[in-house]
């Protein structure tokens, strides 16, 4: 395991070519963590950063001979506030947005999540995932218009039986990488830099990282 602690929230590292940050969004209990666990398979222990209501999953893969380090950010209950801290979105390269096909309200909330995402990250690829199709396979015969209307890729998925889980994550990594390569929202980056100035400077001045995390419970 990594050293852990606040160093993992060093957002600068996501500027490196071989590092991408992919975030998960969606209501409570739609299965975000279950999807992560299915992709990474059991035995994997994520890092709980409870101060930040955040779970980090680290993943390494090789694409075209290059080693790619992927950090998946999962919400750990932060979604309860119907909104995420700006640093959750900051420097992310792709977003996996999940709803539960068994619960209409989780679908109805997608526009809210999408709106917040676009406030911070107007251009990053966003994948829409309809989870729990194992509960009712009939839903796969239906069309869900939200993704189509936004022009977003859409996936029918089951974290339980594994249907299309790996595909979603592989596609997300690919999209994150190509976004990073071709990104031209430089202005967007500059704006975010300014907005996150407080957060960043706080992190840069913290030499004793582990202690800082413990010592500042109000920084989340």
């Amino acid at each position: 395991m990594d050293a852990g602690g606040i160093s993992d929230l060093d957002l600068e590292k996501y500027d490196a070519d071989e590092q991408v940050k992919i975030i998960c969004l969606g209501d409570s209990a739609v299965g975000k963590s279950k999807l992560m666990e299915r992709f990474l398979m059991d035995g994997y222990r994520p890092q709980q950063l409870s101060t930040y209501a955040l779970t980090l999953y680290k993943y390494t893969t090789t694409i075209n001979g290059q080693t790619i380090l992927v950090d998946f950010w999962d919400t750990a209950g932060q979604e309860r506030f119907q909104s995420m801290h700006p640093s959750y979105y900051h420097k992310s390269h792709a977003c996996i947005m999940v709803f539960d096909v068994q619960r209409k309200i989780t679908y109805k909330n997608l526009p809210n999540w999408y709106k917040e995402l676009r406030e911070y990250r107007p251009e990053i690829p966003c994948l829409v995932v309809a989870n729990k199709i194992d509960a009712d396979i009939k839903v796969t015969q239906k069309s869900f218009n939200f993704a189509k209307k936004q022009g977003l890729p859409f996936y029918f998925v089951s974290a339980a039986d594994g249907t299309n889980v790996v595909k979603v994550f592989k596609d997300a990594i690919q999209m994150a990488l190509s976004y990073k390569k071709n990104s031209n929202d430089f202005m967007d980056e500059v704006m975010r830099e300014l907005e996150n100035f407080d957060l960043e400077s706080k992190e840069e001045t913290s030499d004793k990282e582990e202690e800082t995390q413990e010592g500042k419970p109000d920084s989340a």
Binding site: M41, T140, Q141, K142, S143, F156, D161, G162, T163, N164, V165, V166, K167, K170
Partner: peptide
Amino acid sequence: YDLEVEFPENSVR
């Protein structure tokens, strides 16, 4: 592990 299932989008959907 990598179970892919296509749910083809057709006009009668």
